[in-house]
Amino acid sequence: MTTPEDELTPGWQQPTPLGYGQGAKEAQFVAAPLLAAAALGLAGVVAGAKDQVFLLPGPTLLMLVLSAMSLIYSIQLAYHARKFLYSQQDVLDWHGAEIANQAQLWGELRRAQSTDFKVWDRYIRGANRYFNRGTVLLAFGVAAALAPGKESSQPPWRWWAAGIVLVCAFGEIGWQLKLRREVNDRSQRKRPGIGQGGSS
């Protein structure tokens, strides 16, 4: 269903950028479960190995477990947040286009959507923060697992691999900060009356 053009945006909240909700969904419900499984799988390998195989088995396990828990928590937050994200068109699809002609009820629904959007925004920000932390912790855990222990063969190659992962981890931190600034700047430049968007 569609609505009159003058009813499409005023007073209704929407993410900034508009694809923010979909992007968060892909991160939380596709990437996060896979990364959490990888972290727990690697933690099992480290926990089951002899102490001499890994350079720092204790700290490695801690980083991997923290990574998995952070990623799982991000999934939980995102699941809760998703219940509060809906658009003006969703309201019309549910209630019917004629609802737009009932000024009082239409205004109440718009205010409810605005309140719910703020709840979504708060929880999705938290979900994204935990997802970002989880990915960085996973990178550090992988780097620590690659660092050769006393019984490791070909230690130079393992040091090189660990170094590459560390460089990528710091690159990921920089990338996350850059994206957060860009989304926040875009939200601040948003035209009045279109609604308030989320940030990472």
Score class of each variant (00 low, 15 high):
residue 22 Q to C: 01
residue 22 Q to P: 00
residue 22 Q to E: 12
residue 24 A to K: 00
residue 24 A to I: 07
residue 25 K to P: 00
residue 26 E to M: 14
residue 26 E to I: 13
residue 27 A to G: 01
residue 27 A to C: 11
residue 27 A to K: 08
residue 29 F to D: 01
residue 30 V to G: 07
residue 32 A to H: 10
residue 33 P to M: 06
residue 34 L to C: 01
residue 36 A to E: 04
residue 36 A to I: 07
residue 37 A to R: 02
residue 38 A to H: 01
residue 38 A to I: 06
residue 38 A to K: 02
residue 39 A to K: 01
residue 40 L to D: 01
residue 41 G to R: 13
residue 41 G to H: 14
residue 41 G to S: 14
residue 41 G to F: 14
residue 42 L to I: 05
residue 42 L to W: 04
residue 43 A to R: 13
residue 43 A to T: 04
residue 44 G to C: 10
residue 44 G to V: 10
residue 46 V to Y: 11
residue 48 G to P: 07
residue 48 G to K: 14
residue 49 A to R: 10
residue 49 A to N: 08
residue 50 K to H: 13
residue 53 V to C: 03
residue 53 V to A: 13
residue 53 V to N: 03
residue 55 L to V: 02
residue 55 L to N: 02
residue 56 L to H: 09
residue 57 P to L: 04
residue 57 P to A: 04
residue 58 G to K: 15
residue 59 P to M: 09
residue 59 P to A: 10
residue 59 P to H: 08
residue 60 T to S: 08
residue 60 T to Y: 10
residue 62 L to R: 05
residue 64 L to A: 04
residue 65 V to C: 06
residue 66 L to T: 02
residue 66 L to R: 05
residue 66 L to E: 03
residue 68 A to K: 08
residue 70 S to C: 11
residue 70 S to A: 15
residue 70 S to I: 01
residue 72 I to V: 15
residue 72 I to D: 05
residue 74 S to V: 02
residue 74 S to A: 15
residue 75 I to K: 03
residue 75 I to S: 00
residue 78 A to F: 11
residue 78 A to T: 04
residue 78 A to P: 01
residue 79 Y to W: 13
residue 79 Y to C: 00
residue 79 Y to I: 00
residue 79 Y to L: 07
residue 79 Y to M: 06
residue 81 A to L: 04
residue 81 A to V: 02
residue 82 R to E: 12
residue 82 R to I: 00
residue 83 K to Q: 11
residue 83 K to G: 05
residue 84 F to Y: 15
residue 84 F to S: 10
residue 84 F to A: 09
residue 85 L to W: 08
residue 85 L to Q: 06
residue 85 L to R: 05
residue 86 Y to R: 13
residue 86 Y to S: 07
residue 86 Y to V: 08
residue 87 S to I: 07
residue 87 S to D: 10
residue 88 Q to S: 12
residue 89 Q to N: 07
residue 89 Q to M: 14
residue 90 D to I: 07
residue 90 D to L: 09
residue 91 V to P: 02
residue 92 L to A: 10
residue 92 L to I: 15
residue 92 L to S: 05
residue 92 L to P: 00
residue 94 W to K: 15
residue 96 G to K: 11
residue 97 A to M: 06
residue 99 I to T: 09
residue 101 N to W: 10
residue 102 Q to D: 15
residue 102 Q to N: 15
residue 103 A to K: 15
residue 106 W to F: 14
residue 106 W to I: 01
residue 106 W to G: 01
residue 108 E to L: 15
residue 109 L to P: 05
residue 109 L to G: 09
residue 109 L to R: 13
residue 110 R to S: 05
residue 111 R to L: 08
residue 111 R to I: 02
residue 113 Q to L: 06
residue 113 Q to K: 10
residue 114 S to P: 03
residue 115 T to P: 00
residue 115 T to S: 10
residue 115 T to H: 14
residue 115 T to M: 09
residue 116 D to L: 09
residue 116 D to P: 04
residue 117 F to S: 01
residue 117 F to R: 02
